[in-house]
Amino acid sequence: MSPDALATLPFAQVEIEQRSGESCIANDGLCPGWIVDNLGDYATPLVEHIYLTLFSVVVGFVIAFGLAILAHRRAWTMRPISATTQILYTIPSIAAFFLLQPIVGRGFMAGAIALIAYTLFILFANITTGLQNVPADVKDAARGMGLTDGQLLRQVELPMAIPEILAGLRIAMTTTIGLAALAFFAGAGGLGEPIEQDIFFKSNVVIAGGLCLLLAAISDLILLGVQRFALPWRRAQAT
């Protein structure tokens, strides 16, 4: 998103603190004392951010999963679904946050729907790739031993697609955590809100921005852990 676009956006700058006293704060500096005193104020935006991200990724995953299974079963649906998710992905996020407001109203849902739309492309692409990467001879052997299509999917294809699925989830999580910082445009709150409220105050930006990064890092670490735990066969092969 270009800085021009930001500048033309009609939002009001709101002072969140009185800055008369200390010079550090008056200079919009990085003030440890202020940070310690005001950290608690960021709890609500943080929780909002987490909730928005998790909700969007979970719902996005459920939808993408359903679509991926559909595309896997009915090959002809692959292209239209893939194209649609791709188009959704290319809509600029800010535009989506604004465009949704007249339809679903300002607030959480406007933010969440836009974020869900973004995750679809990443998740759908990764799940279908995972399913397609299952070697033909493995599927042939499975069918040849009498697994039904459902058993093949549940016992072979999906478990074997887990690496790609988890990779997709990791990208979707970090991307969504980043994009959720803009969800305040839709009135959905999150860590973007305090940033936007005083974008020149370094202490403010560092806390909010730092929490964003920390969130992304922690979620990625958790998924990395899941990946290692869920894929003993991959680990075994590596050693």
């Binding site: 052997a141 040849g144 031993m145 009498g146 074997m160 894929l231």
Partner: peptide, 20 residues
């Protein structure tokens, strides 16, 4: 087909073992 196959052994060249 599924029932039939469960009573017929099946082995192929690239083994098709389940890696997971």
């Amino acid at each position: 087909p599924a029932e039939l196959r469960r009573h017929i052994g099946y082995a192929i060249q690239r083994t098709g073992l389940f890696p997971h």
